[in-house]
Amino acid sequence: MVAETTQERQPMLSVRGIVKRFGGLTAVNKVDLDVYPGEVVGLVGDNGAGKSTLIKCVSGVHQADEGEIFFGGARVHIAHPSAAREMGIETIYQDLALAGNLHVGANIFLGREVKKEYLGGVVKVLDETHMLTESEKVLDSLDIHIPSLTQEINNLSGGQRQAVAIARALYWDARLMIMDEPTNNLGVVEQRKVLSLIRTLRDRQVPVILISHSIHDVFAVSDRIVVLRRGRKVTEKVASETNSEEVVQYIVGARDDTREEIPAN
C-alpha cells in the first residue's frame, strides 16, 4: 500500500548510479536509491558494505566519482556538508561527528550558531543563553537529561553523546533525515524513543534513511528496505512483503537480485 502511494509522488531524494572509490576499492558501486516524502527507508548490509559511504555522498562529506543526485526534483551537486545542510539534509553520523572540546549547546548549534546583533548588525556576538535554552528543550523532548549543557562532550557518556548527535539533527527542520546507526550506545528505553521519533518524522512527511545493524529496529519502522553488499544494491523490498530471514539472506549473500541482471548489462 505504501509502495503504491509513494509511486505516484516525486521522490524527495533520488540517487542514480552512484559510484565511490577509495583508491582501488570501490566502496559504493552503481547504487540507485529513491526516498519519498513520508517514508522510512531502512538501509542494511554487513560491515563494510558501503552504507556509510553512500549516505556520506548524499550529505556532502564525499563526492561521488560517478552518478547523479536529485533532491526535491532538481539535480544537485553537493560539494560540501554545508550545502547539504542548507538544502535541509540532516545527518546523524555513525561516529557522531561531535567536537569533544565544545560543550553540548555549542555542538547542537555547531555551524549554525545563533548570534545577537549590535550596532545595526556590524557586531555579532554568540547568543549562548538562547542556544543553551533551545538545546535544553530539544534534549528534553528526547527525554535525555544531561546535568549541565555547558559540559564538554568529552565528559559525557556514550549514550549522552549519541543523544546530543540526535538532538542536533532533530533541532533543525530537516527535509530529509539520515540516521547512521542512531541507536548505537543507547539503552533499550532510549532505543524505543528513537524509533518513535522516526515515526514522528515520517508522519510529518519528513523522509528518513535509517541505517542499523538491528534488523528488528529496521523492520519496526521501515516502509522499504534496501540491502547493500560489497558496495552493490542487492535488493530492495517493501518491508511488509519480506521478513527478516529473507533480508539476512541478502545481507550475507545467499540471495542476490542483481545476479541475473549482470549478463544483461
Binding site: 537529561h145 565528559n155 557518556s157 549514550g159 549522552q160 550506545n185 543507547l186 539503552g187
Partner: peptide, 9 residues
Amino acid sequence: REAALQPVA
C-alpha cells in the same frame, strides 16, 4: 547500553 545512558552524576 543501559549503563552507558545513566546520567552522569
